[in-house]
């Protein structure tokens, strides 16, 4: 199952909820302001590092770039995809839940 999150984790709890209400092994794609969750050294980096071990976490490249976040600043294990990759994730998973 694919879960998308589009809120900054510093503003709303959508990322936390996506972790709480997804099964282990699910895909989570961070889009829009949720890409900030991928930053290393942030106040929530520990949670995200832990999540990388239980879920496959992806981040949307155009939204990273727009916000000036270089790949080197991301937590290890988070994978970068474009809109094509977003579509592929939606195809690969049999259902999609958007945590808004």
């Amino acid at each position: 199952m694919l879960h998308t999150v589009n809120k900054s984790p510093f503003q709303k709890n959508s990322f936390d909820t996506s972790l709480r209400l997804s099964r282990k092994g699910s895909d989570i794609l961070l889009i829009e302001d949720a890409v900030y969750a991928a930053l290393k050294d942030s106040a929530i980096a520990k949670t995200v590092k832990q999540a990388v071990t239980t879920h496959s976490i992806y981040v949307l490249e155009p939204d990273l770039m727009a916000r000036g976040l270089q790949p080197a600043r991301l937590i290890k294990g988070i994978q970068i995809v474009g809109y094509e990759g977003f579509v592929e994730l939606a195809v690969k998973n049999d259902k999609v839940q958007s945590w808004l």
Binding site: D63, E84, F86, E88, V91
Partner: peptide
């Protein structure tokens, strides 16, 4: 941004033949 994201997703899905 959600309308933009939806637009780019839709375009990418069409481009991939969906």
């Amino acid at each position: 941004q959600s309308s933009d994201t939806a637009y780019h997703f839709t375009k990418a899905a069409l481009a991939a033949g969906h």
